[in-house]
Amino acid sequence: MAQDTEQPRVLIVIPARYASTRYPGKPLAELTGADGVARSLVRRTWEAACQVEVEVEGAARIVVATDDDRIATACAEFGAEVVMTPESCANGTERCAAALAALGGQYDLVVNLQGDAPLTPPWFIEDLIAGMLRDGDAEVATPVLRADGAALNGFLEDRRNGRVGGTTAVFDRSMAALYFSKEVIPFTSERFDDAAPTPVFHHVGVYAYRPSALEDYLGWSSGPLEDLEGLEQLRFLENGARLLCVQVDARGRQFWELNNPEDIPRIEAMMARMGMS
Rank of each mutant, 00 (worst) to 15 (best):
G166P: 03
T167Y: 10
A169I: 13
V170L: 14
F171V: 02
R173T: 14
S174D: 13
M175W: 09
A177N: 02
L178F: 08
L178I: 15
Y179T: 13
Y179V: 11
F180W: 07
S181C: 09
K182S: 14
K182W: 10
E183Q: 14
V184M: 07
F187T: 08
T188L: 04
S189P: 13
E190Y: 08
R191I: 15
R191A: 15
F192G: 03
D193R: 09
D194W: 08
A195R: 14
A196H: 13
A196T: 08
P197D: 09
P199G: 06
V200M: 12
V200E: 01
F201W: 14
F201A: 01
V204K: 00
G205W: 05
V206I: 13
V206K: 01
Y207P: 01
Y209P: 00
R210M: 07
P211L: 03
P211M: 02
P211S: 04
A213D: 01
L214M: 04
L214K: 00
E215W: 04
E215V: 07
Y217A: 01
G219P: 06
G219C: 03
W220C: 02
S221W: 05
G223Y: 10
P224H: 08
L225W: 11
E226D: 10
E226W: 04
D227T: 14
D227S: 12
L228K: 15
E229T: 06
E229I: 10
E229C: 11
G230V: 05
E232S: 14
Q233A: 13
Q233W: 07
L234N: 03
R235Q: 04
F236I: 00
N239M: 08
N239I: 03
G240Q: 02
A241I: 01
A241V: 08
A241L: 12
R242K: 15
L244F: 10
C245M: 15
C245I: 06
V246G: 06
V248P: 01
V248D: 00
D249S: 10
D249W: 08
D249C: 11
A250G: 07
R251V: 09
R253Y: 08
R253L: 12
Q254H: 07
F255S: 00
F255D: 00
E257H: 14
E257Y: 09
E257T: 12
L258K: 02
L258G: 02
N259F: 12
N260V: 11
P261C: 11
P261K: 15
E262C: 14
D263W: 02
D263Q: 03
D263Y: 03
I264D: 01
R266I: 15
R266D: 13
I267H: 02
E268F: 06
A269V: 06
A269N: 11
A269F: 05
M270N: 01
M270F: 05
M271Q: 02
M271V: 00
R273G: 07
M274L: 07
M274T: 11
M276P: 03
